[in-house]
Write a protein that binds this DNA or RNA. Structure first.
Length: 229
DNA sequence: AATAATGTCAACCGCATTAAA
DNA sequence: TTTTAATGCGGTTGACATTAT
């Protein structure tokens, strides 16, 4: 097996020390983000650029929101995941201060289980059994009626417009036109008014709204256009 | 109290995409 | 147009913590 780049050139790996964090923060505060390849040496770090970037993006950035996910956030992740599948960066983009890694981890360790406990298969959102009646449980209220599609066919793990072929995926959906209609037929109770939910989250937070990178409109998928509108 | 099993999450890897030369 | 470098993404791993036996 090929050795990882960091290992080959004798760079450190694994958990970051406080000193390393501080060096990275100091450097970026002074010179800004970017040039990740040359940054480690310039900042006096024995890390590869990729590792520095990851550390900064996921943990050191000042706008990162740490701590437990609010119920609103959980709800939104569940809904966005139903819509987008494992496109974590898109999902995280709608959650101010959350990173794709954090959202992904939270989904895998908490939300998947939560859905399972409520009798919902997180892969296809079908009922796996009669869920317990849990008044006030937002996820169950969203999904109790939505576990089956109209044809009683299994809903695939991926959203219907996500192809296995990644290059196809982005052309995928002109879907947008019929997205809400079709999606809601798969997941009837899915609240697609995500913008409104975002508004609620954003306004309850001191953080600024998410600032998606300036991707040219033409390169966005229809779904992205829909979400970023 | 010791050990095994399970859960969590930070970090890594490899690949795809984009930008620059 | 092609090649190369940089960046971003999702899947996976592994160390550590917690819970069960």
């Amino acid at each position: 097996m090929r050795k990882p780049f960091c290992e080959k050139v004798g760079l450190s790996r694994g958990a970051w020390s406080k000193q390393e964090d501080q060096k990275l923060i100091d450097y970026i505060n002074k010179y800004g983000e970017g040039s990740w390849r040359t940054l480690p040496q310039a900042a006096g770090l024995l890390r590869c650029g990729k590792s520095c970037r990851l550390r900064w993006m996921n943990y050191l950035r000042p706008d990162i929101k740490r701590g437990n996910f609010a119920e609103d956030e959980e709800d939104l992740i569940i809904k966005l995941h139903a819509l987008l599948g494992n496109r974590w960066s898109l999902i995280a983009g709608r959650l101010p201060g959350r990173t794709n890694n954090e959202v992904k981890n939270y989904w895998n360790s908490h939300l998947r289980k939560k859905l399972i406990n409520e009798g919902i298969d997180p892969k296809n959102r079908r009922l796996t059994r009669n869920p317990p009646l849990m008044p006030g449980s937002s996820a169950s209220s969203s999904y109790n009626n939505s576990a089956k599609n109209n044809n009683d066919e299994p809903i695939t793990t991926k959203p219907y417009y996500v192809s296995d072929n990644k290059s196809d995926r982005d052309q995928v959906s002109d879907a947008a036109s019929g997205l809400e209609e079709e999606e809601s037929s798969c997941i009837p109770d899915l609240n697609l008014d995500l913008t409104m939910r975002i508004g609620i989250i954003s306004s309850s937070s001191s953080l600024p709204p998410p600032d998606p990178k300036p991707v040219p409109e033409y390169s966005r998928t229809s779904t992205e256009l829909l979400l970023f509108r």
